[in-house]
């Protein structure tokens, strides 16, 4: 077995073993391992950061959603208020206008009635005057003497009053 027979090569094997192993250890410690550990640390930071940011964005989205829902609810309530207010206002305005119209119509009707009444009285007075004059004229023709105007009027009034 060469492993036990070639005793002369033992020193060479040991020397080259310690040489190569030593160099490898230094290269690993100084260069390769720090580089890999840096890569891994950077990635871990990045992953942690990404997850944290995703969490933040999620919370933000949730708060935005909540704010939106609150705003929507508020807007809905406001719209209903406005709707109710304006309906009430419209109803009040309509009632007021209705009332004013009614009042005006009533006033106008009353004024019309008064006017008609006055006109009738005037007409009646006029009729009496005309009748008195006609009666005076008729008496003049029949008697041939000028009649007293006041006695004619009294006679007419007596007739109208007896009838009326």
């Amino acid at each position: 077995m060469p492993q036990l027979e070639q005793v002369g090569t033992f020193l060479s094997q040991l020397v080259w073993l310690f040489l190569t192993f030593g160099i490898l250890y230094i290269v690993m410690k100084r260069s390769a391992l720090p580089r890999i550990s840096q890569i891994l640390a950077t990635r871990q930071e990045r992953i942690d950061g990404d997850l944290r940011r995703a969490d933040e964005i999620k919370t933000e989205a949730e708060s935005v959603l909540a704010a939106y829902e609150a705003a929507a609810a508020r807007a809905r309530a406001e719209a209903q208020d406005i709707l109710r207010d304006s309906a009430e206002r419209f109803a009040a305005e309509a009632a007021e206008k209705n009332e004013a119209l009614g009042r005006r119509l009533a006033e106008e009707a009353a004024a019309g009635e008064a006017r008609i009444g006055a006109a009738r009285e005037q007409a009646m007075a006029d009729v009496e005057a005309i009748a008195a004059e006609l009666a005076g004229l008729a008496a003049e023709r029949l008697t041939g003497a000028p009649t007293d105007r006041s006695s004619a009027e009294a006679a007419v009034a007596q007739v109208v009053g007896g009838r009326g």
Binding site: L51, A54, K58, A61, E62, L65, E69, A72, A73
Partner: peptide, 21 residues
Amino acid sequence: MAEPERPQPLRDLDRRLKRLR
């Protein structure tokens, strides 16, 4: 219009974040 549930995409995001962690 008014729904108290979280919208679908937000729930998905929630689940995926938990799994990743």
